[in-house]
């Protein structure tokens, strides 16, 4: 079974975030996109536009000094919705945090208009980021 084209859009978006490729991101997201961060994470809250998204995710790289590994476990999508489950390993001040996170995407005419991040992390997540 071949995957829905929106799966490729999600993969391309992740790659563009890693490469700080704003041009690609501005094509993938709508101009009025909103990123909702939920759970015990340093960027919890709502962030607007590609700049807001990159600034929010940037705090994770700042706090971990780049010690970040993200592994996609699976990704599913149809025309209007997509979801992604991810295993993340962060290192900070000699400590390691492993957690599983969920992403939900709402598409509008092939572009992402809304994106949710939901941390399904362990109890120590809050103290790790504190």
């Amino acid at each position: 079974m071949s995957s829905h084209p929106n799966v490729a859009v999600i993969d391309r978006m992740t790659q563009a975030i890693v490469e700080n490729d704003r041009e690609t991101l501005s094509r993938i997201f709508t101009e009025d996109m909103v990123f909702h961060g939920r759970g015990p994470v340093p960027f919890a809250g709502d962030h607007y536009g590609v700049d807001g998204l990159l600034a929010a995710l940037g705090t994770v790289f700042e706090l971990t000094d780049g010690d970040v590994k993200l592994e996609q476990l699976f990704c599913l999508a149809e025309d209007e919705w997509g979801t992604e489950w991810e295993h993340a390993v962060f290192g900070r001040n000699g400590q390691t945090l492993e957690m599983n996170d969920a992403f939900v995407y709402r598409f509008d005419d092939g572009r992402i208009r809304e994106m949710w991040f939901i941390a399904a992390g362990p109890a120590e997540a809050a103290s790790f980021w504190a």
Partner: peptide, 13 residues
């Protein structure tokens, strides 16, 4: 294959 995003992606680039 494993869809891992880490700094090693940059080394490969």
């Amino acid at each position: 294959d494993r869809k891992i995003d880490c700094v090693e992606r940059g080394y490969l680039r």
